[in-house]
Design a protein around this nucleic acid. Structure first.
Lengths: 161, 161
DNA sequence: TGCATTTCGTTCGACGTCGTACTAGATAAT
DNA sequence: ATTATCTAGTACGACGTCGAACGAAATGCA
């Protein structure tokens, strides 16, 4: 464990003591550390959101649209526009008008995109084992329902206004 | 970035550890949703990092320095410089040179800062119960060691380069 | 003492993210 | 048909975040 100064605290919320605050707190730290680590390990200029989009294409096996991608990743349309523009400039995806709907666009992954995704996974994989070190699969499985519930609650609260 | 929604596909179990990957994925989504919700609920122009810094001051009960704050929240110095500049412009903190060390600075929370923090907490509190709805305290307690371990692993991996 | 190194903080440019506002095209309503 | 409304995507500005580079001050070392 790193330096643990007496002043150490979490980068997220924690207005008081409540348990859920502590949980969100811990989650915030983990997300912070994980994202940074991912970006540092990524080859080239590939960022985490860019990788995630490329990965999605490979798993999906077919083209998609900016809006569907935005929904899939819970980001706004403008955020996805931004990410796709970067990917397109890097030649990792191509974007064409949708023949069916002149408002829409179709996004394809390119061969270079697939290669970049493979390289990223190759760089990531060895790190994942270190990160998983000393973590029991059954403990993770046991924690997932809690997290799913928390996510669902946040989701509902988001729609609430 | 968050995880996929409806456009889901069977995660083909690439080499490595799909389990920890899924965990980090879920954590990413939760952090996303929680952060957005916080910012939407925050009164005025207060952002989450700004609130967290103010909150830290109240809990700490004494001034601090940009570097110590950066370490406490696991962000870089430049990130903290940025946040503190916003807080100072809003009159929520004051920043003075450190008499002991001419390189350093001392950051104080102001009365306006305390008031802003109180207002934020007042706005946040009612949301908390909704977010915690259906979540058992013992389940959270049970999950914390796992998360702590994950955090520690990420921390160690970060220092590894 | 004097110079090299470390430390504290800022500046700069880049990316992700949001929300608002806008265009263009599709759909519904009358 | 014509108009009103909704939908897909983009533009813009703001904030958080990082890393690299920098100036200024403290510390270490010879």
């Amino acid at each position: 464990m790193a330096g643990e100064g007496s002043e150490r605290e979490a980068p997220r919320g924690a207005a008081g003591d409540p348990l859920v605050f502590r949980l969100l707190n811990e989650i915030g730290i983990i997300d912070q550390l994980a994202s940074r680590l991912f970006e540092r390990v990524m080859p080239g200029d590939l960022t985490l959101p860019q990788f995630v989009v490329l990965n999605h294409f490979v798993r999906l096996g077919r083209p998609s649209s900016p809006l569907r991608l935005a929904r899939a990743f819970q980001v706004t349309k403008s955020t996805m526009t931004n990410t796709l523009q970067h990917l397109e400039r890097a030649g990792l995806v191509t974007i064409e008008p949708d023949p069916q709907d002149a408002r829409a666009k179709v996004v394809f992954i390119t061969d270079a995109g697939r290669a970049a995704r493979e390289a990223a996974i190759a760089a990531l994989t060895p790190r994942l084992s270190s990160i998983a070190d000393g973590i029991a699969a059954q403990d993770v499985e046991a924690a997932m329902p809690l997290l799913a519930r928390l996510r669902a609650n946040l989701d509902a609260e988001r729609d609430r206004g």
